[in-house]
Amino acid sequence: MRNPKRNQKIAFFFLFLATLLIVVPVGMVVVIIVVKGLPAINWQFLSDIPRQGMRAGGIFPAIVGTVYLVLGAIIFALPIGLLAAIYLSEYAKENLLNRMIKLSIVNLAGVPSVVYGLFGLALFVVFFKFGASILSGSLTLGIMILPIIITTSREALESVPQSFREVSLSLGASKWQTIRHIVLPNAIPGIITGTILGIGRAAGETAPILFTVAAFYLPQLPKSIFDQAMALPYHLYVISTQVPNVDEKIRYGTALVLLTLVLFMNLTAIIIRYKFRKKKKW
């Protein structure tokens, strides 16, 4: 005889096990980085330029570079991505062409980041002659996170109930008014979620900035968007593989700073999202 109670217990056990298998490695990564990196963190590490062939001193230029790159990428990708998402979910007619466009955007999110790096090199660095610069790097990162922002924003827009749109239209509001006053405000939390995913991806990727912006060693801060800059992920790669005899705590310290920076940016976005969720009345 089958015992439903026992089957349920077995199912719960496996579901719990699967969750544990995800949580434990992530937790370990964080714990190891914090434990090994924390001794390196002090004011000099955060505010000084790298010294003695990056074996001492700080990582301030890399922090600044990453902040610039992420902000640049978001400033470029969020408006364009949002407008494209509005067009695709609200205006585009349901036909083969538009289905293919949607599908290819979803697939673009899975393209390896080094391909974006090469694309950025060809288009921004060489063709537009921006050179290796913050502008080229930001645009490349922006193009990389566009599919994420478009896809999540589109899902957020489409999850606003159709009935709200009908009510608004039935009161004589125009289609744009309906989007502007009913659809968008209720989709903002989902759009911010997409932005958070984009921030995390843009801050952490090495390959797209490798050819487009990242400097091996640059003791001064960038002065304009046409300057090269250091960036945390690339700096981490350099001190881990290219420079011999770098103290372990400096490497883990750099990873910890990168992790904290992403966490801090995400936290800001999460707070904004929470503010909007509280305003949501359904």
């Binding site: 608004s168 009161l171 004589g172 125009s174």
Partner: peptide
């Protein structure tokens, strides 16, 4: 303007996700 002249009350109560005041004011504001 046709829909302003010919209004609808739907089968299910469908308030917009706004306050009571803003629901009623929505049409004239638009």
């Amino acid at each position: 303007s046709l829909r302003k002249r010919v209004g609808t009350v739907f089968a299910l109560p469908l308030p917009l996700p706004l306050s009571i005041f803003d629901n009623v004011a929505y049409g004239v504001r638009m």
